[in-house]
Structure formats: C-alpha cells, structure tokens
Design a protein around this nucleic acid. Structure first.
Lengths: 138, 138
DNA sequence: CACTTGACAAGAATGTTTCTTATCTGGTAT
DNA sequence: ATACCAGATAAGAAACATTCTTGTCAAGTG
C-alpha cells in the first residue's frame, strides 16, 4: 500500500513532493536530505514544511522515526515490522526483514506497558571495507 | 569491575568526579545531566571536559553511547551485553538483562561485517501510566 | 465576496555537541 | 630548584539539527 496523506491534512504540492520522495525510498533519509533533494526541483520548499509534514506523517503512522543514527533523526516510509543494520563508519542503513522472537517476559517489564521493539545491528558496510582495504595498501 | 580511566589518560579531579558519577549509575544520563549534577559540587567543571572525558571513555570501551533517546545522546557505564526499554512519554530508560538469540544469518548481512546488536523496547513507564490515569479522572 | 482555516516561507530561537583559544598543571630533564 | 613540554582545563564561540514564530497566502465556505 502506498504512503498516503493522513485525512484532514490538505494535499499541497509541497507535501505531495515529500510523499513522492519517500515512496519506495530505502535510504532512511534525514529531514535535511529530504529538504535538500526536493529543493532542487522545488526551490521554494521550506525546512519547516519538511519537518511539519514528517511529523504529521509520523503521528499517523505513515513513517517511522529512526534514532539509530546518533547524529540525526532518520525517516523510514516502510512501516512494516522490520529491523535495521547501520554501518559504524558511514552510517548507511539497510533493512533487515526477519522476524525475531524477542518477546519480553512480563516479569522483566519493570512495570512498563510494552508498545514495541526494534533491533539495531551494527557493522561495516562493503564500501567502507573497500576503503579501509585501500588505506591499508598504502 | 569498576570503571577505570584508560591508560594514558591522566587522573584529574574532574575526570575522577565524572567516573564517580557514572560508577553504578543506572539512569543513562546525558552529557548535560552529568555536567549539571557534577557542577553543583564542583563549580569549575566545564562542559568540554565532560564531553572529552566521555569520548575518551567511549573510545576505550568503558561506557556505551545510547542513541535510543532521539533528543540527546545518553551514556551507560554498564558495558556488559544488555538491552534497553524506554518510556515513550518521559524517556526514562531501564536495562533489560536478557540474552536474546538474535544472530543475523550470513545471507541477510547485505555484505556488512557484523559488530554487534542491541534491542530497543518501547513502552510506557509506571509513573507515566499513573499520570495519565489522573488526567482521565478530571 | 468577506471570512475562516490551514499551510506556507523565512528566519529566529533553542538545544545539543564540537571546536578553539588561552591558560594552567604536573612531570621530566637539566 | 628551574625551565620546559605535553596534556588538561575553562570559557565561550561555532556548528549543527530541530522547533517555534511571524506575517503572508490560498482554498473552501456561507
């Protein structure tokens, strides 16, 4: 199912451009990347509009905010249950669509009511391994 | 084993104060909290010293940086393998010391070499549930 | 056609983290 | 003891991401 504007949120060219950008995007872009890329074709786009639209989409469950990258918030239009693997050098993120059994037993809840969970995997991506190999050759 | 200053890093009153603060701390404090609390007893403490010391400790594996709270970086002196549960309302974080089997099969690596993993659980903490109950009564 | 509502752009403000600079301190060699 | 040097420090500036404010604009309604 394609990503939609929540009901009660007006369809505007700016918002549709953001939707188009996110649709099928697997790069987990930050607000700044979205803004920068869209601004090329849409020079009047404002930063606030990007943040406002992302927040509206998030509030209606149309995108997920990722905190896996400590430098900046990232956005993921894939709202199906999945996990992420991030490169420790370049912060490239890829999806991990595997269903792990990580149910938290009641007695370990510490009194919290549970909403969800998410696994962060850390590693080094192929490109960064390449680069490091080249470094070593010198 | 207690948290130690890495070799080659001089023992200074400021750094020892930070170590003392972190020792056994289960609150996953941010740099700002550490700075604010220590400054009470140690008025000359500087922000840069907190960040420098935390970075030195992190580089030597003495503390872990958490990105689970999207608002700010948090620090955890417990470097044993464990996971975290964060309250979606107040961002209170508790430790989950359970060993889940979440090994990522080779064929799902996407070419990354794997370094580690970490599970984020999301929920509502007992205190925030209380508050909401009271809200509803009004 | 006036009015209301929501959205917009632009930039200011806030909060977090990093960087810079000048000063200080402790250890070492003389 | 004294001069020197490396590393640490305090203070604040700078950089960066995010949120907020303000004045303007456009669409839809009565």
């Amino acid at each position: 199912m394609a990503i939609q504007l929540p009901k009660g949120i007006k369809r505007t060219p700016q918002r549709l451009a953001i939707l188009r950008y996110l649709e099928g995007n697997r790069d987990h872009p930050s607000a700044e990347e979205i803004y920068r890329d869209i601004k090329r074709d849409f020079p009047t786009m404002s930063f606030a509009t990007v943040y406002n639209t992302l927040e509206a989409l998030r509030a209606h469950g149309q995108v997920i905010q990722l905190s896996i990258d400590p430098k900046r918030r990232r956005y993921d239009p894939d709202t199906t249950m999945h996990h992420h693997l991030i490169c420790r050098r370049c912060s490239r993120i890829v999806d991990i669509h595997i269903d792990f059994d990580i149910s938290l037993p009641e007695e370990f809840n510490k009194g919290y009511s549970l909403i969800g969970s998410h696994i962060e995997f850390y590693g080094i991506c192929p490109e960064c391994k390449e680069d490091r190999d080249e470094d070593n050759k010198v």
